[in-house]
Design a protein around this nucleic acid. Structure first.
Lengths: 193, 193
DNA sequence: CCCACACGATACCGCTCGGTATCTTGAGAT
DNA sequence: ATCTCAAGATACCGAGCGGTATCGTGTGGG
């Protein structure tokens, strides 16, 4: 297979190293090395390390958004199926040899400055996901879409951190059951609560 | 007020800086400076920076455990009250000028090495919390204590993450309502799901 | 054909990091 | 009164950081 152009190799290397080791723990030299190129080539494509971090997170966010889009396309008028699809996507990503944790949750821990462009990007992405989820809950006819979307968001995020710190086994299957239960409860004609 | 002994000042400074800026982002020099002492004094009390990180996390974990203990003492035979007390404790900690996020969630992102002593400490603490929560659910007579404890854990962790990334407003009140709903559902004699 | 330009390699910059060595000072215990 | 030992101050170490300068080289488009 032909080698990818340097910029792509650098982004692939960044994805691998940033998500495995963290942002601060990885030097530009190491990224260039793993991309089989040099620091100079890296700085020809990215102004600073921060800019590379930003671009990496932009791509990760776009990939997540693409999942939402694909599910919307696959189940145009089935909001419940879309929500379960998202949950399934997260659940399936949980194991994988040694879970590295959500790139957004991990990165935000290393970006305490709320004005940092990469952090702004993360917050915008999370806000956007929240909006879409709320919309889906509304279209599913739930009585309190805002509350339902919040609960689902909490559960999805919580499943990822609990998997990362090893406090929950079989988090994927548990996550699916929990999301279904949450959907049922919020979809109930009334009663419950 | 008399100055605390150097070791305490260093631990206070570490708490402040590590939780605000992150582990890797803070140098030992900065910690010594904020503790109004010197690097040498720091290394007289802690073998390495890692040892200081570990001690800091040990204290944070002990503080959380103390909350569990205090609640157990206050409501000896009311497991539900204890669980709600924990949720209230987390909920109340959510705001606070610019939420810094959970120290464990943040630190684990900077400690990808599962054999690192500080990471082991975090995982042991989270596993312990999970065990206590499961026990409380069992004593509350829930039909599936394991599932209930998992769901509550997910929700508690998720609330912290979502507050940190700003995707949810009024996370505290929402968290309380959700935990109550989860308890009700799992406590229901049968029915529901 | 040739020339521009991305690429790669190497050496370098100033700075900060974690960690150490040395020496002075001051207060508490005997 | 003296001895001890924690505490403070300062200077230093090697290493790695993010970022830059320079210079050959190969290849693809005019």
């Amino acid at each position: 297979m032909a080698k990818l152009p340097p910029r792509e190799r650098i982004l692939d290397a960044a994805e691998e190293l940033f998500s495995r080791e963290g942002i601060k723990a990885v030097g530009v030299q190491a990224i260039a090395g793993r991309a089989e190129t040099t620091k100079m080539a890296l700085y020809r494509h990215f102004a600073t390390k921060d800019a590379l971090v930003e671009e990496w997170l932009r791509i990760v966010a776009a990939d997540y958004t693409a999942v939402f889009d694909r599910l919307e396309e696959a189940h145009p008028d089935e909001p419940r199926a879309q929500i379960l699809g998202i949950a399934r996507f997260i659940a399936d990503g949980l194991p994988g040899i040694s879970h590295r944790g959500c790139p957004f949750i991990n990165s935000i821990a290393e970006l305490p400055d709320r004005t940092h462009p990469a952090r702004r990007l993360i917050e915008a992405h999370k806000a956007n996901q929240m909006r879409r989820l709320t919309d889906l809950c509304a279209r599913a006819g739930m009585s309190d879409p805002d509350e339902a979307a919040t609960e689902i968001t909490f559960v999805l995020e919580g499943a990822q951190v609990s998997t990362q710190n090893g406090s929950v086994e079989d988090a994927g299957e548990r996550l699916m059951r929990i999301v279904e239960a949450v959907l049922d409860r919020h979809s109930a004609p009334k009663a419950a609560r």
